[in-house]
Design a protein around this nucleic acid. Structure first.
Lengths: 195, 195
DNA sequence: CAAAATACGGAACGGTGGCCCCGGTTAGCA
DNA sequence: TGCTAACCGGGGCCACCGTTCCGTATTTTG
């Protein structure tokens, strides 16, 4: 990973841009699991060239998704001052779901331990606790639960890419996140998961 | 895969038993992804011996999980004649969740295309449609949706093995599966996932 | 107990994927 | 235009994993 980018040869700069573009597309299509050789081939360079610019495959991944995650966090913080806590929370969840359904690497980005995951976690936690205080979201859920849920549901959506099914799955999530009717327990006793 | 098992040498029969035992534990702990060499090592045999008894790793997996899945299907069919459709459905879901949380290979068994997946799908469909007709489960969900949901949630549970979190996650699922309140829409408009 | 059939173990093969290195090429500058 | 330094390409190394092969060991049988 080159820190300075001022004294960079013209072809080096051009190749770096190409690699980032190709990585963006490849990661979005196939997630982090895409072979690095395919990224290199898409960029029209050799694998060695990729490693000249990015020390490791993960560094390249970080470089690609950082901008997108930062945007998400910014939107979450913007929504954090929203009047309606429930609307802000579910709106951000919808944004996250749309992003994750479109780009396969989003679920990897918010899951792999690192600064990105921490940022999303913190941003989500603010929205979540506000919504919970307002009574719009069930109080037992944590931000880590939500990230785990989102990640696994995004995987499910990617594994059978039916838009209608994706909407149904996310509807189950959003409805399940709402506070359960606190009045006389209508839950059947057999609905407990014994682990 | 040897069809005849009558003329089987004593050590062969013993090793076959050992392999099945080791595979059962290894698959339960690590899912289908466990290296076959580890199964062989656990059984105290060489990898070649495993392949003498089972033509492929997947054949061994099928031999291990078939009994368990068959039991699940039998229980589903038994519950199918239950008086309370909702209770039967959520009870079976709880059973599936418990089984899947305890054994990591359950999610693989019900997901990999094959007869096991088809059996589970059909058994689940009966319970689901009865519960939907009774108004205990939201009507838009399909059996395939449920399998996808269960699989991904089980993966999430296995990735962070906190029993409390597992219960919370499954609570979100069961609550989200209940029919949404049909009365005046309390859903905020921003809760739609735009895909 | 000896011969024949059968099974065993583990080394080896083939494929995949992350990562590195060397010979050739190209940019930048005088 | 010619020289130097940086860069590029892709072949290659290593690790992992499913699978196969073969010399050896064990069991069965006459």
């Amino acid at each position: 990973m080159d820190a300075v980018d001022q004294p960079l040869r013209a072809d080096a700069r051009r190749n770096r841009e190409r690699i980032l573009l190709a990585a963006r597309d490849a990661f979005a299509e196939s997630g982090f699991a895409v072979p690095l050789d395919e990224i290199a081939a898409r960029a029209g360079v050799g694998p060695g060239t990729v490693y000249r610019h990015f020390a490791t495959k993960e560094a390249l991944f970080q470089a690609v998704v950082t901008a997108r995650v930062t945007n998400l966090v910014a939107e979450a913080q913007r929504l954090g001052s929203h009047a309606d806590p429930g609307g802000a929370f579910f709106g951000f969840l919808a944004r996250l779901g749309a992003e994750g359904a479109a780009k396969r690497d989003t679920s990897d980005a918010i899951t792999v331990p690192g600064p990105l995951k921490a940022e999303i976690h913190d941003a989500l936690e603010v929205l979540l606790s506000r919504a919970q205080t307002a009574g719009a979201v069930r109080p037992d859920i944590t931000a880590a639960d939500l990230i785990a849920l989102m990640k696994s549901l995004l995987v499910a959506v990617h594994e059978n890419p039916d838009p209608a099914r994706a909407e149904r799955i996310f509807a189950v999530l959003t409805d399940g996140l709402r506070p359960p009717p606190t009045s006389g327990r209508t839950r059947s006793p057999s609905s407990q998961m014994v682990i």
